[in-house]
Simulated scan of single mutants.
Amino acid sequence: MTVACIGAGVIGGGWAAYFLARGFDVAAWDPAPDAEARLRRTVDAAWPALTELGLDEGADRSRLRVAGSLAEACAGAAFVQESAPEDLALKRAVLADLVAATADDAIVASSTSGFPMGEMATSAADPSRLVVGHPFNPPYLIPLVEVVGGPRTDPAVTRRAADFYRGIGKSVIEMDRELPGFVANRLQEALWREALHMVANDEATVEQIDAAITEGPGLRWPVHGPCLTFHLAGGEGGMAHMLDHFGPSLLAPWTRLAAPELTGELRDAMVTGTAAEADTRDFPTLVAERDRAVIAIRRAVETARRASP
């Protein structure tokens, strides 16, 4: 089976590496003049982590082919992963081209981080084969994929896409309806906006905010999500007791969900704070550090679950 990856940036390159690790032939296309070099660097950088997690039979980086055009990349592909930049007009044009360039039974999935398929499929001659397959960065390492169709997507296509992702080892949220930003990004965005508020108001530093998660609730979330974590916070009474006891605190001004104005001052504070936290660690060092940590966390959680009575 051939998978086509359209767009070879950070997300598209991560997808290409993951599909190769699952034993597929991968045909990629990106209009940037340096796309092939960047893509092969991304695949090479991801391969040690993918090897440690386990390669499928037939996994081989030599099965990556960089095509000269979108149509060439799609020729013979049964599944297409589109990872073009987050520009609605561009997404509409690319998805229309992909529908025209693929076989009638090929699935075209978009890596969009927020656009509903109903907004992106407006120019496609046949939107029934278009579905969102939203990954998390880096796609070769983070298992989550959010799958949702648009109003004109064939429900059978949505199910096939979800089954495809599950079959290659992804953890799939198959959404019942379109929601801008999907599920995980909306949760992530709420936390991100509150962090920006705290920095903008000089209430906390970038380093303090990151430590508050990595040394606090972030250590619990790989095992239990926020809802089950709060359920356990209620003791034997569970979520009901937690809500009865702590419900009034929801009225307290603990969070501000409206986004702050991204002023030059706030931007500079975020950039400077992040640089200070990174200290002497450059980008490749931080990527390798992250990959090792995520692998260790995932394995630890799997071991704990297997040991549960």
Rank of each mutant, 00 (worst) to 15 (best):
M1Y: 06
M1L: 09
T2R: 15
A4H: 09
C5Q: 13
C5P: 02
I6R: 07
I6K: 04
I6T: 04
G7Y: 06
G7C: 07
A8D: 00
A8G: 11
G9D: 11
G9Q: 06
I11C: 08
I11V: 15
A16G: 07
A17E: 04
Y18M: 03
F19M: 13
F19H: 12
L20M: 11
L20Q: 08
A21E: 10
A21K: 01
G23N: 11
F24N: 02
F24I: 05
D25Y: 03
V26Q: 10
A27Q: 14
A27I: 00
D30H: 07
D30N: 14
P31S: 10
P31M: 05
P33K: 10
P33I: 05
D34R: 13
A35Y: 07
E36H: 08
A37T: 14
A37Q: 14
R38T: 13
R38C: 12
R38A: 14
L39N: 05
R41V: 01
T42E: 10
V43M: 07
W47V: 04
P48K: 08
P48Q: 04
A49D: 12
L50P: 09
L50D: 09
T51M: 00
L53Y: 00
G54L: 08
L55N: 07
D56R: 15
G58P: 11
A59P: 09
R61Y: 04
R61L: 10
R61P: 14
S62K: 13
S62E: 15
R63Q: 06
R63A: 15
R63Y: 12
L64V: 11
R65E: 13
R65N: 11
A67V: 11
G68N: 12
G68I: 09
S69R: 12
L70P: 09
A71L: 06
A75Q: 13
A75T: 12
G76H: 07
A77F: 02
A77K: 05
A77W: 01
V80D: 04
Q81R: 04
P85M: 10
A89N: 09
A93T: 14
A96L: 08
D97N: 12
L98F: 06
A101S: 14
T102C: 15
A103W: 00
D104T: 12
D105G: 05
D105E: 14
A106L: 08
I107W: 13
V108E: 09
V108G: 10
V108P: 10
V108C: 06
A109T: 10
G114S: 14
P116I: 08
P116R: 11
M117Q: 01
G118D: 08
G118L: 05
E119N: 12
M120I: 15
T122H: 00
S123V: 02
A125C: 02
D126F: 04
D126G: 09
P127Y: 05
S128I: 02
S128H: 01
R129Q: 04
R129S: 02
L130N: 02
L130E: 00
L130D: 01
